[in-house]
Nucleic acid binder design. Structure first.
Lengths: 151, 151
DNA sequence: TTATTTTGTTATCAAATGATAAGTAACGAG
DNA sequence: CTCGTTACTTATCATTTGATAACAAAATAA
């Protein structure tokens, strides 16, 4: 079968995803925040609570750099480190109310742009889009299980 | 309808795509090349021939920075600038044979990883994946038409 | 022809990011 | 308790990337 053609579609597709994601977010990044810091906030927003190691693993950043950038976010009052019961080395990282408000605003803008692209879609097409997202995430764009944590 | 749920899937999906793309490419980037330069090479490989402005527009880089980084790629003999008939300001940028060989190797590695994820898929699932890529690219992940060129 | 726009270049500077070494505190095994 | 491991921090340095100003050559318009 034409697996090579499928691979080419995969390449073109990932390029489009990168580009569209960038178009959706490029002009709504507040000052006070670098692109890397934004990606950390987005990750925290979706996966909170997280640990420093989670961020480091998922964003492919070294621990020292993760620590440094997170400190800047904490200094800006955009996220908080809470002690974790049971292991005092770890911190549960969450968005602060300000950080949550900021990310709510960002996601709101993104959602508006997303809906602008889907508003003319029929219910059938919407269902198809949702199904397509599910299929691809399950079969191709799944993320390797990171080495699991403990009990 | 649950457009909000769909948007959340969109957000999770784009995050997965970024991550998987990174996992596919992180350890096959040769020395001699920075991440930004790699993204330029990948874009050139897929869209060649391109102009400097094309790269600048599609990769959201300023012209001066695009020019600088492309010069480094040219110095490394990974791409070539050819004169364009009809407009001597423009250059048709292509991969050099060395650059093409390098990108062939990179895409080969990526394809192996892609196939590792799809080798157990039935022909029906493969068809479904292909259809899903088409649907999403047409309805959500299409890129805005940049201001068109000339005649 | 002259003026304006397009396409690209060069130079310079600041900021963001990556990499490494060294250190600390808490946990867990023996 | 001691030792090794985990989770994280601090400091430092080099590289990469982004931003801006100033320029030049070719095309296009007037």
């Amino acid at each position: 079968m034409d697996t090579n053609g499928l691979f080419r579609k995969f390449v073109a597709f990932t390029a489009s995803v990168h580009q569209v994601k960038h178009e959706f977010t490029k002009d709504i990044r507040l000052d006070e925040i670098t692109p890397l810091q934004y990606s950390m906030l987005e990750y925290i927003a979706v996966s909170q609570p997280v640990t420093l190691s989670d961020i480091s693993d998922c964003l492919f950043m070294s621990m020292p750099n993760t620590s440094r950038e997170l400190k800047k976010l904490s200094d800006k009052r955009l996220c908080e480190k809470l002690a974790v019961a049971g292991d005092r080395r770890k911190h549960a990282i969450r968005l602060s109310p300000q950080g949550q408000a900021m990310m709510d605003g960002v996601f709101g803008q993104m959602e508006a742009r997303f809906m602008a692209r889907t508003q003319d879609a029929t219910p059938e097409l919407l269902a198809e889009i949702e199904h397509a997202l599910d299929v691809l995430q399950a079969s191709v764009f799944y993320t390797e299980r990171p080495k699991m944590g403990k009990s």
